[in-house]
Amino acid sequence: MDRNQLAKWLKSPVEMANKYSLHAVYFCTGCGIIEIPPVITARWDAERFGIKAVATPRQGNLFMITGYVSLKTLKAIIRTYEQMPDPKYTVAFGSCPINGGMYWDSYNTIKHLDKYIPIDGWIAGCMPRPEAVFIGVTHLWTLIDKGKADGYIRYSKNYASYRRNQEMLFGDLGWPPLYPSESPAEEARA
């Protein structure tokens, strides 16, 4: 542990713990996942930064979407995201989640992922190399430090609009809203 970090630990242990214990749920939507094994195994060893893969969203706080998002997987992504407890951070990995990438003209691929769930950080590239993942992680740390990794807060604040976008795509989502709207009037306005 760095000596200059000790003060930070004493000042705000919760934020520091959030930073250094990123338990990641990798949503293996496309080819991007191929870069994750080198990240977490012997060559680059993400565990030294406290990053660990977990199996269910209930246990994690980092949501990595690796690869293109088709219409069908988007539904699963939304549900998994909503099942993850706060605070949680979302990182989209590769060019496909950013703007569709090489599937820019596909009828079935989502081009604007942040219309449906809030994204805290993007890692560009096709594929991004493992080094890029670590640069992304250090950027995420900075964001957490500055309090700007606030995707989950934005999601709860603008839930009505996110939900509307989701429902425009799917019709009925099949599960009740995560944040029930405050008043019927607001619902009507939405």
Binding site: A17, N18, S21, D86
Partner: peptide, 12 residues
């Protein structure tokens, strides 16, 4: 660190 983080994370 993990335990501190988990204790302060929301749960279901």
């Amino acid at each position: 660190i993990d335990i501190i983080r988990l204790m302060n994370q929301q749960s279901i």
